[in-house]
Amino acid sequence: MIAQNIAFWIIAVVMAAAAVRVVTSRNLVHAALFLITVLIGASAQFIILLAEFVGVTQFFLYVGAVAVLFLFGIIVTRAPMQPADYDNDQRWPALAVSLLLLGVLVALLIDAFGHQEIELSDDLLAIGRSDAVGNSLFRTFVVPFEVVSMLLLAALIGAVAIARRD
């Protein structure tokens, strides 16, 4: 337990710091790299929670695909590589709103879950294994799965149609 806890806190602090840098960085590419850091951190947290399938998917899909997509976006919009001011004029109201939201959420979470513990044990590992996830996915959630396949096709064709130069 202690080992996982230490791992959690280290990763959590890195994630939090990286997340803050994503939204404050004055360089687009740096922001993207910080985002990748957060995503890898999340993936690591999933592994800590013994959800290995999700963790691996997160790693490949996000870090492999989404992050690249972002870098691609940065390149095609020809963002300057040197630092620039990427903030708009509502930084302070934005900060106020997000802090308020954070305060409310944390208060509610503490109120609701107090000191409840997650027990990390082997039976949990069994739940998050690929075969268990796959079984559940194709038994109970076939329809959403099929719907998602259509959704990905639509997103793909839509994105191409919109982004294509003609």
Binding site: F141, V147, V148, L151, G158
Partner: peptide
Amino acid sequence: LISIFVALELISIPTFVL
């Protein structure tokens, strides 16, 4: 909840493009 979420996204994403 999952089906509702997925269905909602399938309603939305094509219309974002449209």
